[in-house]
Design a binder for these strands. Structure first.
Lengths: 210, 210, 210, 210
DNA sequence: AATGAATGAGGCTTCATTCAT
DNA sequence: CATGAATGAAGCCTCATTCAT
C-alpha cells in the first residue's frame, strides 16, 4: 500500500514523511507515535515535518486521505475485474499485499478508533465506506449473477454484508497470534469471500447438488 | 454494558472506577484518557485509583477482563435461547442495550487497536473471540436448522462468517453519523442477522419460492 | 544496636516503630523510606505512627536522639575499660555488633548527610561528636600511656585523629563490596586501631626494636 | 571542584547542568533535589535536561564520574609533588579550594550514602577509593621517608590510615557549625596531616628531641 | 487505641511545537 | 530549505498526612 502520490507540489518530502508516519502509526498507533519517531523514521529533523504539515493531526488526516484514495483506486480496479467473484476477491485480499498484513490492519483499526472520537475523521471514514458500498452495490446490480439470485436480498444489502464480513476479518487479523503467516491470513480471506459468494450468488440448482 | 461485579472484596470502589474509566475510555480512547480524567469522572482523587489498580494499564486490563466476562455471560444466555435465530440476534444486538451504542463500539474497537500492539491484550481479545466462535459453532452444530443445510459450509465456517459480519457492523457503528439513533442501528443489526440466517439456514424449498 | 528505651510512657509502641524505622532507614535511607514502609515493617497501620510521632521528621529526630544515647553509653563503657587500648577498640568495633555492619554504617552516613542540610540534625551530630571527643580526650589525658608519649600531639589532637580514622573507616564500610563479611570488616577496624595506638602511645624503646 | 570538561560534543550545556546539579545536590542532597530545582538553578527548562541526560540517575552518575576524574587528576598532581608531605597535604586540602567546603563535603557524604544502597554507585566509589589508596601506597613506598620508618606498618596500611583520617575529617566538616570558615577548616586539615606525617615518617632521632 | 481509605501536592518524564541559526 | 535546541504544559505515579469509623 502507501502510494502517497501527492498530485501537486513538493511531492517528495510529503511522501517521505507520510511513508515514515505510516510505518510508525501502524506499528504503534497514532497517539503512541511521537513526531520525533516520525522524523527519525524519515531520517529528517522534527522541524522539517512542520514545514509540510501544520501539526500532527494534519499528518494523520493526510494519511487518512491517502487511505481514501487507495480505496478509490481499489474500487476502480475492481470495476475492471472480469467477474464479480474476482472483484470481490480483490477487496478481500487488498490489504494482504502489504509487507505486514497485521500492521496494515492495525492502521485501519486505528483509523476507525480515531473516527469514533474525531468527527472529521469519522466523516472521512464514512465517506470511504459509502463509496465502497456504492461501488460494490452497482457492481452487484450489474452482474449477470444477480439475475439468478433467488433470495430476497437486494444488491445494497449484499454489499453491506460483504463489507461487514471483510471488516470483521480485518479486525481479527489485527489481533492475530504472532505465528500466523500472511499467507494463511490471505487464505482465510479467500475462503470466506468464496463461501459468501456461493451463499449469495450461486444458482439454486448448483446449491442443491453441490 | 459494564457490569463489573467483582465477586470478592472492595467491590464498590473498583466498580466505580471502572465505570468511570469506561466512560472516559469510550469517549476518548485509552491513550487519550488521563488518570485525572478518570478520577474526575469517578468523583474521587487521582491517588485513590492507585489503591485499587496498580497503574493505568491495570485499569485497562481489568476492563478488558470485565468485557471478557460479559461476553461469556452473553454466550451463556445465547445457549438458552429457544432457537438458533434468536440466539444469533442476541449476539448481534447485545451491545445495543448500553446507554450509548456508539460509545460501546468505540471501546471495543479500541480494545482491538490496543490488541494490535500489546501482546497481552491481543491474547485476551483472541480468547474472547475463540470462545465466542467455539460457542456458536456448537450452537449451530446442534441446531435443527443445521440438518437441513444444503451448502457445504461447516458450522465453524458459518460461525466465523457470522461474527465477522457482526464485528464489521460494530466497526461501522463506531464511526456512524452522530444523528443515527441507537434504535436505527439496532434495526440494521437485526436486518443483517436475519439475512445471514436466511442465507445460511433456510431450507432450499423455502429459498426457492421465497 | 537500637535500644530505643524511652524512659517514660508508651514505651512499647514508640520502640516498635523506631526499630522498624531503623530497619527501613538503614536499608533505604531516610528519604527513600516512606511512612508506609515503616508501618509495614512494624506490622501496624500508617495512622498509628502519627499517634506516637508528629511526622516523619520527628521519627528521624527520635532515631538520631537514640543514636546519641547509644553513643553516650558506649562512652560510659569505654571509661570502665581496663586499658586505653581496650577502650579504643570498643569505639572502633562498636558498630560491628549489629546484625549487618554495612546497614549500620549506611545509617550513620545518612545521619551525617542529613546533618549537612538540616541544622537541627547537624547540631545533634556535632553534640555526639563533641562529647565523644571530650570523653576520649579525657581518657587519653588520664591514661598512663600518655605520660610516656614523646611526640608533641596533645590528648585532644590524638582523640580527633582517632575518631577521624574511625569515621573514615565507617564510610568505607558503607560502600564495601557485598562479599566482605562483617568479621573481615571487624578485623580491619581492629588492625587499624592497633596501628594507631602503637603510633601514638608506644614507648620509643619499643618502637626502635620492634 | 567541578570541572566537568566533557571532552567531546555539547560541552557547554552538560557542564552547565552538572554545575547546577552540584549546587542543588550539595545543598539538598540527591533525593531532595528535584529536576525542577536543577533546571531553575541552571536557568533552563526542565525538558532540556533530558536532552543531555537520560534521567535523574544519569545526572547523578555523571557527577559521580566527574568526581572520579577529579580525584584522578588530584592523584596525578600529587605524584608530581616535590615531597611526600606536600603530596599528602594536597589530598587533605584538595576539597578546600572549592567555593564552599561544606557543600563539597555534603556532596561526597551523599555519594557514600547513595553508594550504601546503590550497587553501581558503590562500585564507582570503591573504584575511586582503591585508585587513591593504590596511588598513595606507591607514593609512600617510593618515598625516601619510607626507608627511615621504624614501625611495622607497611605502605598500604599507612595509606589506608591516611585516607581514613581524611574521610573522617570530611564527614566532620559536613556537619560543621555554620560559623566555621573554610580557612579554619583548611587549617584543621593541615594540622592533622602534619601530625599524621610526623607520627608515620619522622625519624626516631627527630622524634625524641622534638 | 487502631485502622486504612482518602486526599492532593509534587516529583519524574515525555512530547508537540517553535525558532534562531 | 533544514536543523535540532529549547520550551513548558501535561501525564503518570508516590507519599506524607488526615480523619471517619
Amino acid at each position: 500500500m502507501a502510494s502517497f502520490r501527492s498530485s501537486d507540489s513538493t511531492p517528495d518530502r510529503r511522501e517521505q514523511i507520510m511513508r515514515a508516519a505510516m510505518v510508525c502509526f501502524a506499528k504503534h498507533g497514532f497517539h503512541q507515535t511521537s513526531m520525533h519517531d516520525i522524523s527519525g523514521e524519515a531520517g529528517i529533523s522534527v522541524g522539517l515535518i512542520y514545514r509540510y504539515f501544520e501539526n500532527k493531526d494534519a499528518v494523520i488526516s493526510a494519511m487518512a486521505d491517502a487511505h481514501k484514495e487507495e480505496i478509490q483506486e481499489l474500487l476502480d480496479r475492481a470495476r475492471q475485474a472480469p467477474s464479480l467473484l474476482e472483484a470481490l476477491e480483490l477487496f478481500f485480499t487488498a490489504h494482504c499485499c502489504s509487507d505486514e498484513r497485521q500492521i496494515e490492519c492495525a492502521f485501519v483499526v486505528d483509523l476507525f478508533a480515531e473516527g469514533s472520537r474525531n468527527p472529521g475523521m469519522a466523516r472521512l471514514v464514512r465517506d470511504v465506506l459509502d463509496s465502497l458500498i456504492d461501488g460494490v452495490t452497482e457492481l452487484i446490480a450489474q452482474s449477470p449473477e444477480m439475475r439468478a439470485v433467488r433470495h430476497e436480498m437486494n444488491p445494497r444489502q449484499m454489499a453491506e454484508l460483504i463489507f461487514a464480513a471483510s471488516r470483521g476479518l480485518l479486525m481479527r487479523d489485527a489481533v492475530d497470534a504472532p505465528g500466523t503467516s500472511d499467507a494463511e491470513r490471505r487464505e482465510r480471506q479467500i475462503e470466506l469471500v468464496r463461501s459468501l459468494w456461493r451463499l449469495l450468488f450461486r444458482k439454486e440448482s448448483e446449491s442443491i447438488y453441490a
